[in-house]
Amino acid sequence: MNKKIRVVIAKPGLDGHDRGAKVIARACRDAGMEVIYTGLRQTPEQIVETALQEDADVIGLSSLSGAHEHLFSRVCELLREKNAEDILVIGGGVIPEDDIPALEKAGVKKVFTPGTPTKEIIEYIKANVKK
């Protein structure tokens, strides 16, 4: 057995700021994970389908354009439709504290706000991924 954590890092919506997503992708790789980076402008449907085909353990969503409520929630909704709520959904970007409870209610397990060390994110993933 040599299980590796598989992570889909995705940029939903039209936002082009991918510095954070790419830094996280690298940090996950350096922590021994397999990272599937989807690139920009992904619809929630594309992201979920990618996660299913790639058998991802985690979906990391990043958005800085303010469209997180719609996009993140839609990803979670689609995962439920596909009976794939076991996939851990986490998010980051410019996300006001006020919006976090609604996102968590929608199914995002954890929202990381700006300034979160990548180590913290890695540790969170390792601790919360379903085996």
């Binding site: 690298r26 350096d30 990618t50 085909q53 790639e54």
Partner: peptide, 30 residues
């Protein structure tokens, strides 16, 4: 990566139009 055991699997990026095609299945492997 031989050092960390991790990998960035990025080929999908150029095939994302296909991700919603019912008749296509894409899998990335390290």
């Amino acid at each position: 990566s031989p050092f960390t055991g991790g990998a960035i699997l990025g080929d999908r990026i150029r095939m994302q139009d296909l991700s919603l095609d019912e008749g296509v299945f894409i899998r990335s492997m390290g």
